[in-house]
Amino acid sequence: MRINRLSKAIATGLCAGLILQTTACGTVLYPERKGQTGGQLDPAIVALDAIGLLFFFVPGVIAFAVDFSNGTIYLPGGSAELTEEQMDRVAREDGTVDQEALEQVLESELDTPVDLKTSELRVRSLQSVEQARALIDSQPTTLAAL
Rank of each mutant, 00 (worst) to 15 (best):
D94L: 10
A11S: 14
V105Y: 02
Q86D: 03
C25S: 09
Y30G: 00
E103N: 05
D42W: 05
S119H: 11
K34C: 06
I3Q: 10
S79M: 11
G13Y: 04
Q36C: 03
V97L: 14
L18M: 13
D111T: 07
C15A: 15
R122H: 12
A47E: 08
A101C: 05
E85I: 04
L110S: 05
A63H: 01
A65R: 07
R122E: 11
K34N: 08
D42G: 02
D98L: 05
D88Y: 02
A65G: 06
V90H: 01
Q99E: 12
L82W: 07
Q131S: 06
D49F: 01
D111W: 01
P113R: 11
G78Q: 10
I3D: 10
E130H: 02
F55M: 10
A80N: 08
S138Q: 13
R92F: 04
L48V: 10
Q131F: 00
L20C: 15
A44V: 15
R5C: 00
I19M: 14
E93G: 00
A16R: 01
F56V: 08
E84H: 09
F57S: 01
A47G: 08
F55E: 01
A145M: 15
D49C: 11
V46K: 00
D115R: 10
S79A: 04
A24T: 03
S128C: 04
M87C: 07
G78W: 07
G78E: 10
A80E: 12
G71E: 06
D115E: 13
T112H: 13
S119T: 14
Q139E: 15
R133Y: 09
Y30F: 15
L121G: 04
S125N: 14
Q104D: 14
D115I: 04
R33Q: 13
T27W: 11
Q21C: 08
V28T: 15
V105W: 00
A65V: 14
A134D: 15
A91Y: 02
I73H: 02
F56K: 00
T23R: 09
E130I: 06
F68E: 02
S138L: 08
L126T: 10
T141F: 10
N4F: 06
I62M: 05
E84F: 08
K117C: 00
E93R: 12
R133K: 15
R2P: 02
V46R: 00
Q127F: 04
T142S: 08
L106Q: 04
G26D: 07
T37K: 14
A24H: 04
